Amino acid sequence: MAKKIRVMLVDDHAVVRVGFRMLLSASADIEVMAEADSGELAYQQYPEHQPDVVIMDLSMPGMGGIETVRRLLARDREARVLVLSAHEDTAHPKRVLKAGALGYLSKRTAPEELIEAVRAIAAGRIYLDADIARKLATQDLASPSGTVEALSEREFAVFIQLARAQSVNRIAEILNLSPNTIGSHLYNIKQKLGAGNQAELTLIAVRNGLIEA
């Protein structure tokens, strides 16, 4: 019998994990062998389980999906991560892939596509939601000033937390940075995006489909 693909599910909603577990377990070649309800817990448990594929929700409380991907890849360069998101913008998938994930799927994709993505990523291949791949292919990939594309990777991580109304001290705790460093990033973010306060940053994030209103 061929070896099964061992999967870790990471999502802060238990009912979502149950649904994915049922879907994936129906496939003879996939086994869900671990679950976590946060990026922090996934990072802690990863060495113990050593899954073939990590399926991770992007928008979780705490350090969130992109930062978790970055830390998992820093810990294990061979980690294979598939990110799931309700967002269908192009900023998120580009950040996710740059952080080291091999795949990005919209949560609206057909169930059979998730299984196909898991198999592809377990084999070391990149897998993107077809609509998102098309948007990325046709988009101007330059980083114009005044848009979120102008932000560095760390600035983008701070920006998302700020848009979620997190305090500077809380963001420092989540990202393992000093409050002074977060303050510097905040200044640069406001300059690049032309925002005067946190409310304007939140509005920019909503307009770009990066967070829900």
Results as ranks from 00 to 15, higher is better:
L114H: 07
I211C: 02
L105V: 02
K107T: 14
A42S: 11
R108D: 13
L186Q: 08
L97K: 07
Y46R: 00
L136M: 12
H185E: 14
N197R: 12
A79S: 14
E48V: 15
S178I: 14
G19H: 13
Y127V: 08
N208L: 14
S184Y: 15
E113S: 00
I132A: 00
S85A: 11
L128C: 07
R119I: 02
D12G: 08
N180K: 04
I204P: 05
V118H: 01
R70A: 11
R6G: 04
F20T: 04
E173V: 05
A101N: 12
V54K: 01
M22R: 06
I160P: 05
M33L: 15
G39Q: 10
A28Y: 04
R6P: 13
P47F: 09
E35W: 10
F156A: 06
A150S: 14
L23Y: 03
E113D: 07
S143Q: 05
E173G: 14
T109P: 00
K98W: 00
R95I: 03
I126T: 09
E200F: 13
I126A: 08
L141F: 12
A150Y: 02
R6E: 06
E35S: 07
G65A: 04
A74L: 11
E31M: 03
K3G: 05
N176V: 07
T147N: 07
V16P: 10
L193K: 08
P61C: 08
R95F: 03
H49T: 10
D129H: 03
H92E: 09
I126N: 13
L24T: 07
E173T: 15
D76H: 00
I30N: 00
L73H: 13
E200W: 02
P61F: 00
N176I: 00
A163K: 08
R80E: 09
Y127T: 09
N188M: 14
L177H: 10
S143N: 10
A26Q: 12
S38G: 13
E149V: 10
G183M: 01
R134T: 11
A2H: 08
K3W: 07
P111Q: 10
N176H: 11
D11V: 15
Q50N: 06
L73Y: 03
Q45A: 06
R125T: 05
L175Y: 08
V81E: 03
